[in-house]
Amino acid sequence: MAVIKTENLTYIYGEGTPFEKKAVDDVSLEIYEGEMVGVIGHTGSGKSTLIQHFNGLLKPSAGSVYIDGEKLWEDKARLREIRFKVGLVFQYPEYQLFEETCYKDIAFGPKNMGLDEAETDRRIRETAQMVGLKSELLDKSPFELSGGQKRRVAIAGVMAMKPKVLILDEPASGLDPKGREQILSLLKEYHQATKSTVMIVSHSMEDVARYADRILVMNKSKLFCLDTTEKVFHRSEELSSMGLSVPQITRVFNRLKIMGVIPERDVYTTPYALKLVLGELGKE
């Protein structure tokens, strides 16, 4: 069963004012349990607005959202439960840290859920380990940590609620290449360990190609496609016509195919490319 489903979802900013703008236009999609989905799209294409509907932060102007088969906004009191089910990590989440210690900050979500002390403690230690925070850091103030560590604390704060779906808006933006790599691979590990659904909004085609099972492409407020990675990157001409690109390695191999050097065309990760090239060399 689809864990997230939308039907003709439309959202208009500033409805009824001269500044009216359609941010999400007639989007119908289904996200299945246990998937890792990458969300890509140009700046202002409606990605962030779309994901804020999945945990009831925004109310659709038209259409509906179902989480686990339950229609949102039918009963406003249920929204809080939904937010524990669908964890949303905003862009630059380190700016929302507020407690004196990292421990207390991670505890904010579980406490709001009404969990008891022992369970909260267990979850904090578990998620801290998952995001690679050393236990001695838990008693430090989040404001003393480095940018990358702060981000881990913030992500742990959402993970500790053990949501069925974890959605992250640009979790790796503003980090150095090493930090990016670490954050993304810890998300992959989290995905594999918990078997939960993970959605990652990203600008980097390379990252999406490496980590996602399926890719959701937004273009000018509309859903362009939601399909497997191979199929999405197969449409490289269409993607580049809307200002998006395919991974660099895919571009290289597309060109190689045109030149007739290598038969394969759908290459989108470096490890796979390496294997392919080594295979070709082996033949000779």
């Binding site: 804020q52 932060l57 937010r83 990590v89 700016y95 929302q96 979500g109 709001n112 609620m161």
Partner: peptide, 13 residues
């Protein structure tokens, strides 16, 4: 607005 949304996402009431 952004911070409010983020805290609401963590169940702030």
């Amino acid at each position: 607005d952004k911070i409010m949304s983020a805290q609401k996402a963590r169940g702030a009431d």
